[in-house]
Each structure stands twice: as structure tokens, then as C-alpha cells.
Write a protein that binds this DNA or RNA. Structure first.
Lengths: 327, 327
DNA sequence: CTGAAAGCGCTAACAA
DNA sequence: TTGTTAGCGCTTTCAG
């Protein structure tokens, strides 16, 4: 592999000049530039990013931490991140934490090792202490997840409001016994969505019991199915179910299909996120659209500003109710 | 950020010794080692991968090229790649080509720039000429896709055989008019699956007309739905459909649901790949299981061997028919 | 077992 | 407009 030295020699100029045509072409005389470019072509030269990175002490790499890449919700955010990162001349390192602290730790080392210039984290299970500590040394943005105490930059949506609106929608449709499929309440978003759900119920004087909430250990299809099975067994006469994630809702829907319960006639069901697959179910799923792509895209914007040392403000994006045939 | 120099100074040793405790701890005296480790801890030192990479002229990064990250088939392969790469001390750079040559080109430059030590490509639309040329200079492994001419290393399954077996299974179930939802026949796998399908039909003396094959422009849910709509319009009395991809099959299944056609009673349908969602449809989809995770994992194995300069052999993995309720 | 020193490929300050 | 040169942080040979 030819180096900048080889090019310089071949073109009969110094390495500085070669570097200039690479980075500041306007500062070198046209004729010299052409000589250099010709040499580059003949040698099939490509600059080594390794050398450049060391010299600039940057890696032009962004760390993206997600719990599980197979979760379509995160995936869509990652697409937004990738696109915008690329535009800014950054590549992304997508890492799955599997919600394990050890893994997380390994990946955060990539920051400490200068292999990434900054990180976007989406893992709600993250070790907050460590994260806050880390954020003091390195540019970090939280995406979708966030903290109440404002020590970390974030971009998210208003989960409480969205849940409130969706529950209200179900109530307005006449449903009075609405179950909820929540995820673990150690997650802030789970607590917020529950609050929104409760606020709407209260506003409509609808019945509620704490055990109408099914708490899914994981946000998966299987858990959703299990949730619906469990809910149906209680024979509480629910007519609607509000799930805090599309994956859970799709699982629940499948169980309803299996048991021959007609949706939405006998049971309405709504999800959250608007992943692509909500469009593929039968019937299609009513859900809350999160602007995932945009969220990823803006997260990059924020992170890069942070890397440059600029101040940034937290962002709360708009959501939207998507009413389809499942309700 | 402290450097190896800082550590050396603090510990009262040379940088070489610090480097040794980092890379060859056994070659340094216990007491010196402890001194150095203490210094490292006090300074909260982490070695810069940037410096190491330049010195070693390697990036310990693997390029992974896929058409679209949202395609669950590729995603599962990527999981296999990631896991195994990590085990070998490599990180992966997942890049979406969107099946566009320009994109592909940009990403392949990461090899030329030494930002990746090798690449695993899964894009069937790739510019073969360029790929072959590139593979002469850089370690590259094709995954899932492959060439007839043996100029590129690959790992894949026997598509022809799988398609043959699946079609045969449908025939044995008594189906005599079987439509096929194929993808663009510019792809080798599409041609092979068609051949397998035809071979089975011939063996059973089943009817066939060229226009029983729907050629999907993209391997997407929407195309699958469109395919089924189109097939149903022909009123050819099909009783089964063989789709070359689960995404297509799931789309087709949705259309059957919409039209109120009972599956499998009025129409049997089978997919290909065994992505997770085939488990979530109602009814669950009969399909051909590809060992995607394993494929990714072995691809890494092959690539790393190649990087090390070892000889490798191409691999054809076993598949498996998964018979479920859709047939 | 340890240290001195060269050098990986590049950029940028300084000089000419 | 161009060249000389130092140095980014690390590993590794060679001497001691």
C-alpha cells in the first residue's frame, strides 16, 4: 500500500504538499495539484485513516448503544443515526448491550480508548451512575431514554402525554375496562406511560385495579402473547388493551387471533412506537407514532455539537396517534 | 487523557515497559508490573487504540455490508457476525448499501483507507467486477450470496435443493397448482430457487406456466402483498404459493387474510429464511430455516483466517424445512 | 528483565 | 506557494 511519502516522491513534492491537496486543495498551485493527483492515481493511493486519526486524535466514529439490534424500534433510530452521521463524515459502531452491564462497560471502553469520539445510548437499563460519570469526560447523548435530573443530554418524546392521549382515545370509543401491558417499571418510560394511562382513566372515572396492569419482563413478542393469555384468564371483562410497545401488542394480537377473539369487535388493542410491522398485522395496529428516524438524526446533530464543544439543549419531539383497525 | 508516557513517568519506568505490561505481562518482573499497574490506575489510563492501530497497521475493524439493516434476514446474520467478531477482538462496522453502487463504493473505501481489516458482504446486487478486483487486495468473504465462478470466498446454503424440497413437500400434500413468488432473477439465489421449484414440479408432472411466477422488484412485505393480489387476479386456481423470502410470504399472507381466504385450507403458503416474524403470523408460516446466525459466525471465522493470510475453503451450510400451520 | 530509539502515516506550525 | 520538521501514542527491535 502506497503512503503519502510514496506519492510525494513520485510527484516530486513534499509530503506537506500532498497533504494539502488532500485537505486544503485551494492552497496549492493548480499545476502542482495536478502533478500530485496524477501521482496518486498512478499509485492508486488512498490516505490511511489510521495515520490521520492519530495525528488529529479523533476517530470520526460514533458509538451507538442499543439493547438489542433486532428490536425494530431501535433499528429505525439507528437508521436515522447512520444517515446523518455519514453526512457529517462519521461512521457508527452499533453495539448491543443485551442490557448487560458488563457488555455496556466493554463498549464504553471504546470511548476511553479513543476509538469513538462520542456515544449515543438508548439502553434504559444502563448504569446511571457510571453514565453520568462518563458523560463528564466524553460527549454522550441519551436517545429515547432520559433522566429526570438534568445531568445528561437527551432527546425523547413525552411518554406520559402520549399514553394519556391513547388511553383517552380508547375511553372515548366507549371502552371502560382497559387493561395495560406495561414493561418493567424500573424504566422511566414505563412509569410515565402508566401515569398517562392512569390520568386518562381518572379523568373519565373509569374503573381500575392495580392488577389490570401486566408487567412484561422483556419487551418481546412472546411476552405480549403471554400477557394477553394472562389477562384473558382473569375474566375481568376487558374490552381494550393498551400496550406500551408494538412488540407486546403484536404478541397480544396473536393470542387474540389464536383464541378466536375478534379484533376490534370483542377486544380493541393499541400499541406504541409504530414499527413497520404494525402495518403487517391483521388487523393493522393502532399505535403511537414515535419519530424514530428523526430522533436518531437529531441525536447525531446534538452529539456532534457536543464533540465540537458547543452547548446543546435537550429535545422533546412530537408524537402522533395512529388510529387503525385494531381499535 | 493520560498517555503511555505519563504512565511511564509516574511509574519510573520506560514506555517500553508499560507497553510490555499491556501486551506481554509475563515478560516483566512482578514488582515492576505492580508499579506500572498502580500508576495506570492512579492516572485512570486507557491505551489509545489510535496509536496502537497505526503502529500495528491494523484497525481491528470488520466491514459488514448489507443491503438494508431493517431486513430481519440480514439482521440475524449480523448478530452472528458481531458476537464472533467481538470474541476475536474485532468490532464491526455495519453499513447499508441500499443496493446502490455509489454507497457500496464509499464503504469499500474504508478498506482502502485501512479503517477496516476485511469485509463481509451480503449484497447480491454488488458490482461483481469491482468486488473481484478488490478481493485481490483485501480479505473479503461473501455471505449468503455467492458466485458460480470460484473467484470469491463464500458461505451460503444450497438454495436449489431447499426450493426443491419445499416444493416437493407442497406437492406431496396434494397441491398441483403451485405459484411462486420470486425476486429478481438477476440474483443467483432467485434463479437457483426457481430451478429447484421447477425440478420438483417436473418430477411430479405438475402443471406450470412461466407466468405463474411473480417477480418481486424488492424483497419487501408490500411486494408480497402485491404479489398475492396479482396472483389471485389471474384466477388460475392455485392452491399453494411458494415464496422465496419470508417477507414476501408474510405480505402474501396478509393479503389472504384481507380477502378472507383461509390459510391453509383454501391456500397454502410457504416462505424462506425463517425470520423471527414467521412465528408471529397467524397462522405461523411454513418456511425453510437458514442457519443465519451460524452463517454470520462462520463468515467471521473465514474472514479472520483470510486476514491472517491463511487459506480458506468455501462453505455450504445445511438448511431445514420448518413445517407449520400455513401449509 | 529493562531502556533507548525508530517508526507506523499523517497534519500543521513555522520557515523560506 | 512550498518544504522542513516535530509529533500524535503506541509497539518492537536491539543493546545492555
Amino acid at each position: 500500500m502506497p503512503t503519502i511519502q510514496d506519492v510525494a516522491k513520485k510527484a516530486g513534492v513534499s509530503v506537506a504538499t500532498v497533504s494539502r491537496v488532500l485537505n486544503n486543495p485551494s492552497t496549492v498551485k493548480k499545476i502542482t495539484k495536478q502533478k500530485v493527483q496524477k501521482a496518486m492515481e498512478e499509485l492508486d493511493y488512498s490516505p490511511s485513516i489510521l495515520g490521520r486519526n492519530l495525528r488529529n486524535s479523533e476517530s470520526r466514529m460514533l458509538l451507538v448503544l442499543i439493547p438489542k439490534i433486532s428490536n425494530p424500534f431501535y433499528l429505525r433510530i439507528v437508521e436515522g443515526i447512520e444517515e446523518n452521521a455519514l453526512e457529517h463524515g462519521y461512521n457508527i459502531l452499533v453495539c448491543q448491550t443485551h442490557s448487560k452491564t458488563e457488555r455496556e462497560s466493554v463498549y464504553f471502553d471504546l470511548l476511553r480508548n479513543r476509538l469513538a469520539d462520542g456515544a449515543i445510548t438508548m439502553d434504559p437499563t444502563i448504569d446511571k451512575e457510571k453514565l453520568i460519570h462518563l458523560a463528564k469526560q466524553f460527549p454522550i447523548v441519551q436517545c429515547s431514554e432520559y433522566d429526570k435530573d438534568k445531568s445528561l443530554s437527551y432527546i425523547t418524546i413525552d411518554s406520559e402525554l402520549a399514553a394519556y392521549q391513547m388511553t383517552k382515545f380508547l375511553l372515548k370509543q366507549g371502552h371502560r375496562r382497559i387493561a395495560m401491558v406495561n414493561s418493567d417499571e424500573k424504566f422511566l418510560y414505563a412509569r410515565e406511560r402508566k401515569n398517562g394511562y392512569l390520568r386518562a382513566l381518572k379523568e373519565f372515572d373509569a374503573a381500575f385495579e392495580e392488577n389490570w396492569i401486566y408487567r412484561a419482563a422483556n419487551v418481546t413478542f412472546e411476552e405480549g402473547q403471554q400477557a394477553m393469555r394472562s389477562l384473558l384468564n382473569r375474566e375481568e371483562g376487558f374490552t381494550a388493551v393498551f400496550a406500551v410497545s408494538d412488540m407486546l401488542a403484536i404478541g397480544a394480537l396473536k393470542e387474540l387471533n389464536i383464541q378466536g377473539i375478534s379484533v376490534p369487535d370483542e377486544m380493541a388493542i393499541s400499541g406504541f412506537d409504530k414499527i413497520d410491522f404494525t402495518n403487517m398485522t391483521f388487523p393493522r395496529l393502532t399505535t403511537v407514532a414515535q419519530p424514530m428516524y428523526k430522533m436518531g438524526s437529531i441525536a447525531v446533530e446534538m452529539l456532534i455539537k457536543k464533540i465540537r464543544g458547543e452547548k446543546i439543549e435537550d429535545v422533546i419531539l412530537d408524537h402522533e396517534l395512529i388510529i387503525r383497525e385494531s381499535t
